[in-house]
Amino acid sequence: MNMKNNFKKKVLLKALLLSFLSVLFLASCSNDDEPVKDDDVEIIDDTPSSTSNYYKVLRAENFGYTLADGNELEDKAVLYYSLVDNKAVGSEYRKTSRWDLGFSGLYSSFLSGNNGANTGNLGSGNSAIGGIYIVEQAFDEVVNVPNDAVFKTGDRIYGTDDAGDFGGGVGWYLYDFDGIFVRDGAYDNAHIAYALGEPLLLKSGNTVPARTLIVKTAKGDYAKIKMISVYKDILKREDYTRKSPKMFFTFEYVLVPKGSTKFEIKK
């Protein structure tokens, strides 16, 4: 009897160990960088594109979330925005063409368009035909819609600018790690992200020219975007501090329909 019980116990133990190990095995190879796959949830994309948002200056305010204290390098959150509808889109719509602008990577600050054909894109496999591009020109000066060939279709395309720390080429914001590019290096002035919708004067005397993002939307419309701030309700650069609540994207943009050659404002 005892023997039998012992065996039963052993079998149970092994089974437990087995399931534990399987979990381990399954978990050990998951890649943290991989976004959560929710492809099984099929969302039928039947929303017609809004047409009321063309040819006028639209504004997104405080789009984002609070980064937890002490966890400022968290990059798990990916945000989706519909420029066509001027509203946030939930991540369950990732595989649809309902969103036009993706925010991913460090601080959710690396931007991309929605493109189903690029396997690296957040929307990989969907029917979206979008992309993103950046120019070193002020928003108002960007008049022409660029050639379709310039749009980049991958993930995390534009973020930090080479004029600041951890630059990734031409970017839409300058990251001032030590607070010395833009200010005096005091404690409160470190770790600040300056959106480059307007030119930015540096301590060195140089000015970083304004940058404008140009997005081809999921369905082929075009938008030019001026990034204004990443801080909640704080839009003036002089008011940013290292403790200001982030990441809350505020930006302005103009949307024109598919086939347009100019960013016209008619309303």
Binding site: L106, F110, G154, D155, R156, I157, G168, G169
Partner: peptide, 16 residues
């Protein structure tokens, strides 16, 4: 080539 700096690669497609 658009590569100016070879540093931190913020994505697989980045040049770092």
């Amino acid at each position: 080539s658009e590569i100016n700096k070879i540093g931190w690669a913020f994505s697989d497609a980045a040049n770092g």
